[in-house]
Structures are given as C-alpha cells and as structure tokens.
Design a protein around this nucleic acid. Structure first.
Lengths: 156, 156
DNA sequence: CGGAAAGTGTAGACACGTCAACGAACCGGC
DNA sequence: GCCGGTTCGTTGACGTGTCTACACTTTCCG
C-alpha cells in the first residue's frame, strides 16, 4: 500500500463533511415537504417541470433523460411509475419505431402547478434566505467549475 | 392560488441548480468509484469509518444512527446487509436487554483500510483540487449556517 | 441489397431508504 | 409490585436507483 496518502486537513475534512451534510439535510427536508404537501417526489417534480415547459408538454424519452442527467433505465422505471399514477402518458413516435414520447397529463399539470409555488417558497425559506448574494455567487462559481472538471473526467 | 409567489431570479435559479448538480455528480462519481475499486458503498464506508474510530471497534446501535444522522430503520436495514457480507457483527448488550452493539470485523477493517486512501484521493482529485482555500471556507461557512437554521426548523 | 454497428427503450434482480407498525425491555410514580 | 409511557431495535411494504442483459429499430457502409 502507498504510505504517502495525503489525508485531509481538519479544515478540509470539516468543509467536506459540512457540504455533504448541507445537501443531505436540505434535500431531505425539501423532498419530504414536497411529498407531504403536494404528493410528488423530487424526481416527479423534476420530470413534470421539464415536461410542462416543453412544447405540447411532450418530450422524447432519452432527451428527457439527457436534460435531467438520468440514466435511461432510471427514466424508464420512473416514467412507468408516473404513468401508473396518471401524471404522464407514453405516446409512440411515428418517425422512429424505437422511440417514444412522454406527455404530461392534465392531472400532471395540476400537480406541478400546485407544487411549484410551495417548492420555491421552501427553497427560499430553507436556503436562499440564509445566504448572501455574494456567497451565492461563490457557490455557483465553485459548482460550475467543479462540474466542468467532472465532465472532463467522465468524457474519456 | 396565491398569485404573489416570489419566483427565483435567474441568478438564484442558476445557483440553486448548480449546487444540486454539483452534489449529485460529485457524490455519484465518488460512490461509483468506491464501489468499483473497494467494493463498499458510501453508506458502508461511513459506518466502517465510525466503527473503526470507536474504542474496540464497537458502538451502540442508535448512537451510530445519531452520529451518522440516519433513521434507526435505515440503520437496522443497513447493518443487516453488512452483517450478511461479514463487515460487522451484532453483539448483545449486557446492561440493556433491548440494546445491541455493532462491532467491526477483521474483514471490515481490511475493507476500510484499503478503501480510505483511495477515497480521500478521489475527494481531492474531484473536488478539493479545484477549490481555493478561501472558497472552501465560504462553503463551510454557508453550510454551517444553513444547517443550523434547518436544525432550528426541525426542532419545534 | 445485406449485414454489422449503433441508438432507443424495456425488464428483472438487487441494493437502498422511508414509513408505519410492532415487540420487548426499561423507568418512574403510585 | 405494577401500570403507563418511553426507549431500543426489528420488520414488512413500498418507492426508488443501478446494473446487466435484452429486443427492436435505424443507420451506416461495402
């Protein structure tokens, strides 16, 4: 084993753990609120937002997966569950025999329109209200830069 | 419906989405590396770190849950899986007939000792190396402050 | 034209987390 | 002592995410 491991300094360890902790707590609370108040999961919410903003409320399957950065398998399973609950329907694609559209239903629109304002309010109350504009810019800058590096990491 | 929803500004929306995206990508990549290189999940890793640092490699069940901020049910399910794979064992508590200890096994120690250096290296390579010390301090400060608010939110 | 390769989506097995209900042991006051 | 409330931990049902393998198209190219 390589004995020259560069372990994290206490500051690094603290920052890293705090960051993970922040996300877990925040996302957990937001998800539970969304579920309790609006009866949709965060994943449902993401799909419905994407569809409701699309022309005719419809999107190709893998296009949706690409936008949300989900694996196609996850998308397939999740759409199956959403179909079962009546939030979306599948529609065959005339141009491509393999493909399919996912289309938001009226029930889906009602869900998202009821959930969105509450969700936005929660994001403000639980997060944005406690962060200064300068801090938010720093956070965004860090996030963009690191994600860019990760993209480069995964590409090859 | 309340028409006076304070929707997110483009800057806020961008920062929020970037933050979530950062966590998802980073955590996803780290988890997959941990699994592929060391055959442990992030959750296994967290448990093993905690146990390996404890005296005699043992901890009371709910104490572990409290430290990791996991629900007791999650802990119970997860420990059951780890027992099945031989990473930990359960041990009855003589003082308290209800209670139990979770104890790390030799195999568990080997796992964590092999996984830790790689994991630390990955955290550096994928995250810390791309963030300045000042940015890291800002991130830690934000995280602490918001988590504190969330604690206050959940307590009552 | 025809066959290989790549694209689109599905399906099953499994790991994981949450929720709610439960059983068993402890604890405090009467 | 014992009864009610609390704590400790388990369990089963269910929704979710990943991985692998698969089936069916389309497309590319000789």
């Amino acid at each position: 084993m390589d004995e020259t491991v560069r372990w994290l300094t206490p500051e690094e360890q603290h920052a890293w753990r705090s960051f993970i902790r922040l996300h877990d707590r925040l996302w957990g609370l937001l998800s539970r609120r969304l579920q309790a108040e609006s009866h949709v999961s965060s994943a449902d919410f993401a799909v419905l937002v994407e569809l409701s903003e699309a022309p005719d409320g419809r999107r190709r399957f893998l296009e949706l997966a690409r936008v949300l950065e989900w694996e196609k398998s996850r998308m397939s399973h999740h759409i199956a569950r959403m179909v079962k609950r009546g939030l979306v329907v599948r529609d065959e694609c005339p141009d491509d025999g393999r493909g399919a559209f996912v289309v938001i239903t009226d029930a889906g629109r009602e869900m998202i329109e009821a959930a969105a304002p509450r969700h936005v309010e929660a994001v403000r109350e639980l997060f944005l209200d406690h962060v200064t504009p300068a801090e938010l810019r720093t956070l965004a800058r860090i996030s963009e830069r690191v994600v860019e590096k990760l993209d480069a990491e995964e590409a090859p």
